[in-house]
Design a protein around this nucleic acid. Structure first.
Lengths: 352, 352
DNA sequence: CAAACATACGTTAGCGCTAACATCGCCGTC
DNA sequence: GACGGCGATGTTAGCGCTAACGTATGTTTG
């Protein structure tokens, strides 16, 4: 193997070998070669052996583009995403890729220039044009989500992390339950109420967390204090945290992600308000750095990897369903998990 | 334009329209349709108009798989990467995707299960089999890098962030210069020497930073203190930081990334050693959270987006070169930038 | 023992597109 | 006014593969 072209006449064209070449060497038709490759029965063991040997000798590699043309399936899936630099989307994408690999699919990405309906539509269009078998959309934004409802129906679509209420399957973490958990943790520690720094208003995830926060507060008979809206960045958490730090009534803050919680931590520190002794802070996501914040951050973990792999499975079965005419799969919710560290504590007793 | 199928005889097959269908409506051959699509001259304006109108009417979309089969170019590029969850690779990938989009290419990702020669080879193989026109490899690991030297030569390859010394183009940040800068900053502040927490020994980036750190120290006539090796995680920075915090002689620490620096910050804080008054700490990367660490982290910024887009340009020109027989492009180095914040300060004067 | 049926192949058509060549007017040229 | 040339188009061949059918052999069955 490797000395194959030593004593051979110059019958080796520069182009890579194709099925017919393999067939010629093995003494069979190109179709039999195809049968061997596709694991068809109806090929006698000796023939199969000769074909395999010929493939080895020539270093034959099947051309997947030709195969895609004739079968109409490219074994490629598209992922639409906005900012894959953020931990959440990046981890989800990673989970998707692993699962896709295992399922024999490739992932092609299309990131958005802007977070609006038109961009999402254009990205889906581009992917479809390229011949993907299905599309995953990681765009947890209100406006963008309903772009999915107007998307073409001839390619299976799955919304990841968040999506429209109906129409297409959605695979996401149970944000409401997560927010209820986080808020409840603070209430259980004895805090009178919990302040909330939300994400951008158009974010579906943020909306669900606000929902959970409100619901938990109301079920405890408390009136939710005014909500503050950030933009996921540590900077916005810091700015808003400074506002909160001036109000002595604030003893518990629930930030809608860990980065904003980091900003709050810093703001409280600068204002001389000790965390967790004077103020408790909780985040959301559980990014890898959270355990090393000062103090280590209590947060609500989202299992992004699970969301990724689960959404891939849903997409694959949607593709099967489309092919066989079966019923499309349903979405699913991944449970959130409360991670208690040192940024939350029982409420301090009022001074003398 | 939407009532097209209202009074029309049942001549609309369920399959999507192809060039021949467009040609039939426009009264031309499918080849003329092809010419219009590919912007060929030699098509009269009226004909072009009729073809365009027919395309519109039918909602024709070119089939890029068929095109790829006949042209031998898929306009798809592969990216091999290890952990796209980390900020560096994620940002680079993002930069690559943006540039690819602009250049009319798609990106398909192949992430590695393990960081070794075989995995890298297998990933390259998979991508090539899928028909990519070129491959970018973001695997700054010593062993994996030389897998690139044994890679097939019939598909252009570019190493991103780090790579072998020669053989294939490498696009990366100038790690050595960055480390020299960071170390120099500490020396300039009056520190007698600078301790270093490196990344994993097999990481090429870590190796270059160690190199820069040593060189700068030696050029200042200092003997580099023993080096400590971490694994990029905040945890390892914390563990190693605790060791350093016990040594009163340590006044300046250069961590090879921001996460480890975060761990050091935490370790120093717990040991009661004030940063920056007693100990200065500098990181590397400038992740978005760094300005909100306590204290805000001085670090060496890497422009990952620039690395991504630049490496894409290099790959595209390598593809052109292969096609036209021109000379392959060279790699390039992106400059690092020192970002001074509050975790570094002039060395404290010795006590009474 | 002919009919019926597997099994192991080969042959023929495409998939939808582009490349290469062929064809047909129509122009200016000498 | 016959001729070269060129612009605008049609025709013919594939790209490398799979699907569908055709055709030899054996193998069973009533």
């Amino acid at each position: 193997m490797g000395v194959a072209d030593e004593g051979r006449p110059p019958v080796r064209p520069r182009r890579p070998p194709v099925m017919a070449d393999v067939g010629r060497i093995a003494g069979v038709s190109h179709q039999t070669v195809s049968r061997v490759i596709n694991g068809s029965s109806h090929v006698s063991p000796p023939t199969r052996g000769r074909v395999l040997a010929a493939m080895q000798e020539l270093g034959y590699r099947p051309n997947s583009i030709a195969r895609a043309l004739v079968t109409g399936r490219s074994r490629t899936l598209g992922v639409v995403s906005f900012d894959t630099t953020l931990y959440g989307p990046a981890s989800t994408l990673f989970g998707i890729e692993r699962a896709a690999h295992a399922a024999g699919y490739f992932i092609i990405i299309a990131s958005l220039k802007a977070l609006d309906r038109a961009s999402v539509g254009e990205a889906i269009d581009r992917l479809q044009l390229h011949g993907v078998d299905g599309i995953l959309v990681i765009v947890p934004d209100e406006e963008s989500a309903d772009a999915l409802l107007h998307a073409p129906t001839d390619v299976p679509l799955v919304a990841v992390e968040a999506g429209p209420e109906s129409g297409i399957p959605v695979v996401a973490v149970d944000q409401v339950a997560g927010a209820v958990m986080g808020t409840g943790h603070l209430l259980d520690l004895g805090h009178e109420t919990v302040w909330h720094i939300s994400g951008p208003p158009s974010s579906l995830e943020s909306q669900r967390r606000v929902e959970g926060w409100r619901a938990r507060l109301e079920s405890a008979g408390r009136t939710p204090p005014p909500m503050l809206s950030g933009d996921w960045s540590a900077r916005s958490g810091y700015d808003l945290g400074r506002r909160l730090s001036r109000d002595r009534a604030v003893t518990a803050v629930f930030a809608s992600n860990d980065q904003m919680a980091l900003g709050v931590l810093r703001a409280m520190h600068e204002a001389g308000r000790g965390v967790p002794h004077e103020v408790s802070v909780i985040g959301f996501d559980d990014i890898p750095e959270s355990p090393y914040f000062m103090p280590p951050l209590t947060t609500v973990r989202q299992d992004f990897g699970e969301v990724g792999s689960r959404s891939l499975r849903v997409l694959v079965s949607a593709i099967e369903a489309l092919k066989t005419g079966g019923r499309p799969p349903a979405g699913s919710l991944v449970e959130a998990e409360l991670i208690v560290r040192s940024s939350t504590a029982v409420v301090a007793v009022a001074g003398p």
